[in-house]
């Protein structure tokens, strides 16, 4: 049993991503969408924490949201994977429940 968590806020604006990661369990997935994709960037004040959580939790960003914001996938933290909308749907189907961190 596992959960797909979605986060749609920049971690530099709200606690949503950090709170999500603090409640995610090993084997869960976190998909960053909308302004949440900023959480996937490397070289930020949060990168180290993200890398640590990434050991137990699969981290994804929604690629169309990344592209819309002019962010090159090369800037993502190592291990953060880009998915498109069909990939988002697959993640929802694959995990037992979806929890949105609004």
């Amino acid at each position: 049993m596992s959960t797909l968590h979605t986060v749609n806020k920049s971690p530099f604006a709200t606690q949503a991503l950090v709170s999500c990661l603090n409640h995610a369990k090993a084997g869960d997935a976190v998909l960053m969408i909308e302004d949440g994709v900023y959480g996937g960037l490397g070289g930020t004040g949060l990168t180290e924490i993200m890398e640590e959580f990434g050991k137990n939790v699969s981290l994804y960003v929604l690629s169309p949201d990344l592209a819309a914001r002019g962010l090159d996938p090369k800037r993502l933290i190592a291990g953060v994977e880009g998915v498109d909308y069909p990939g988002f749907v697959d993640l929802v189907a694959k995990h037992d429940r979806t929890q949105s961190w609004l």
Partner: peptide, 30 residues
């Protein structure tokens, strides 16, 4: 798959994301 939309149009991206998601889910056979 059921979908809940909690924000209005144009101010927030939420409903646009929901639309793209629903379209993709149906296309995938869900």
């Amino acid at each position: 798959i059921g979908v809940l939309v909690s924000e209005g149009p144009y101010t927030h991206q939420a409903v646009d994301s929901a639309y793209k998601f629903v379209t993709a889910a149906i296309a995938a056979g869900h």
